[in-house]
Amino acid sequence: MNRIQQRLNANKKILSIYFTAGYPHLNATASIIKSLEANEVDMIEIGLPFSDPLADGPTIQASSTQALRNGMTTQLLFQQLEKIRETVSIPLIIMGYFNPILQYGVEAFCEKCAHIGIDGLIIPDLPVDVYQEHYQALFSQYNLLNIFLITPQTSEERIRYIDSVSNGFIYMVSSASTTGKTIGFGEEQQAYFRRISQMNLKNPQIVGFGINNKSTFDAATKHAHGAIIGSAFIKHLSTHGTETIASFIKDIR
């Protein structure tokens, strides 16, 4: 069983943290991962920076631009992660846009991920039908889960389709927005989370976008299995650096 699936089976609300590789410093990747695991985060999304991240808001985009300026590349990220499994056992997901993966070679990318011990991928601009037709067999060959997004606008029929192609969790985007917007989790969001929860999907749902503190984390996970924090963590890194990760996580749990 994949590490992500194991973690999802534990009866606990999942806290997943996203950070951009190469930010704030080129070589911070391994130390951020270790620190997140030490502070009992459940899952980590490592952002492979891209020049044109369409689904992201200003915070993550700025961190990506900075990471690329710092010299981050796909190859370098793999080098930094080469020995990561000697020290951590937390589920690791790489989140990246499709073009850099395509240029690396999708199969070579998957092979490298499997070799390192990456558990899953989130590729926001890889459409589910293209994945199913061309890459699903490859991903399962390398035991990589591919995580798809749904939004409040996604139709029930399409959610069922996405659920049928998924085998880890479903990334439930909290509202129609890019990352890093303050949206709150009022009745509208709760109704959406409830609606999805009542669909009895085979994959658990983890909420992303708009979660930035304990109250939004609690609200987001009321009807879902967990939540992902990205932009708020990047902001924390940009003002406080990597030294105070513990206090950031403690404030959420």
């Binding site: 891209f50 020049s51 044109d52 796909t74 190859q75 846009y97 073009n99 993966i101 240029q103 690396y104």
Partner: peptide
């Protein structure tokens, strides 16, 4: 350019070896 994805379309685009759009 090389084959890749830009603005939602698979096409030819100018990019670095690493797939960053130039």
């Amino acid at each position: 350019g090389k084959e890749g994805i830009i603005h939602g379309s698979k096409t030819l685009l100018m990019q670095t070896q690493d797939g960053q759009i130039t």
